[in-house]
Computed example of a mutant assay.
Amino acid sequence: MKPIFPAIRLRDKGNWLAGRDGIVMAFFIHRDHSEVGPAIWRSIQAYLRAIPPGSLNWYTSADGDMVPLDDEGWEHNRHVVIERIGGGSRTVELRESPSEAGSYQVEYYGRRLDSPFHDAPATTLSFTFPTEYLVEHGAVRLRSLALELARELPLNFGYASFALVSTQGSWASADWDITEALLARYAGLDAPRAMRLSSDLGTRALAPAWLTFLGQPLLGQLGGIDALRDALPFPEVSLLPMDGDRVLVTLDEWPDPIDTRTKPIPPQYRALAQRMEPFLFQYEGEALLPYQQDMNRWIRRFL
């Protein structure tokens, strides 16, 4: 049964759109960016074929400025992703709007595992869609697209979820009281921060989502596919083995906002969260910053 999706528009102090409702698909790959560039580029091309023409109009240039995405821009971004010479990180940000949170965007943060600038790096690729895309095309089509985007990625973790679609986690710049109330009410509402997590996630997991992708070493740490099947004996759940010793866990027919005012947390979300608990990402230390404490609690919201 298709759930009711809340219409969300979050604005910052300047009244710019900082976040909106939509779908995020994020993939975390514990490999140097030089090993996965061609697969990343093919995934970006698959996304481009799936979205309406002209949805991506701007990109982040080598100088860090937002500039129009023309043929020269596409070649620049292809070079950033594919080029294997030299060290350092790689950044590709493709946007619908230069200043506001658009419906469609790509964020790619290629990392080196030996980088001294990141605590626990993970090469990260993220795509977004407006909720209208999901409603128009249906959950089956979106799940198929997620599989296509992930097909060649040697991911260790990934997910697709109803979300606050924004650029570089700009949803956090909106009125925090409103944002906090939304996250407290909708347990199935993701708050993506691809850039930050690309520096911190390593081989750990985030909370379960509508679609949860598990690869190595996470899948092995969880006991493999058979152990997951035993832990998730729910009619809504399906497990699809993927090439490369990966699995896609689907927790429901549709991505569910999980409005806790009207329903409890579905048991399959709790069961997978409990299985994943030892491997969930958490900020550690005695003097955590407030946002770190908030994120630790939020990642554990299904437990």
Rank of each mutant, 00 (worst) to 15 (best):
G37P: 01
P255R: 02
P6Q: 02
L164V: 02
Y47T: 03
E136S: 11
I225P: 01
M66I: 12
A174C: 07
K2A: 14
D119Y: 13
D21V: 04
L69A: 06
L211S: 03
I225V: 09
V81K: 00
I29N: 01
R141N: 14
P217L: 05
Y186I: 05
A163D: 02
L183R: 08
L134N: 01
V237C: 00
H137Y: 13
G22L: 01
S161M: 05
A160E: 07
S115N: 08
F129S: 04
R261S: 14
A120Q: 12
H118E: 15
L303T: 14
R297H: 13
W298P: 00
F28W: 08
L211K: 03
Q293G: 11
R84Q: 14
Q45K: 07
D32Q: 08
L240T: 14
L214W: 04
P98F: 00
L153V: 03
A46H: 07
V24A: 04
Y109S: 09
F127L: 05
A287D: 15
K263R: 15
Y283L: 04
I178V: 15
E100M: 07
A120P: 10
D200Q: 14
E277S: 11
F27L: 13
R84G: 12
D114N: 14
E136R: 11
F281W: 06
G64Y: 02
Q282R: 14
L232F: 06
Y104I: 03
T212V: 04
L125R: 00
A174E: 04
M276Y: 06
S173P: 06
A287Q: 15
W210Y: 07
E148F: 08
L189R: 01
D259A: 05
H76G: 07
R229A: 13
W210P: 00
H33V: 13
F127H: 01
M295V: 13
Y59R: 12
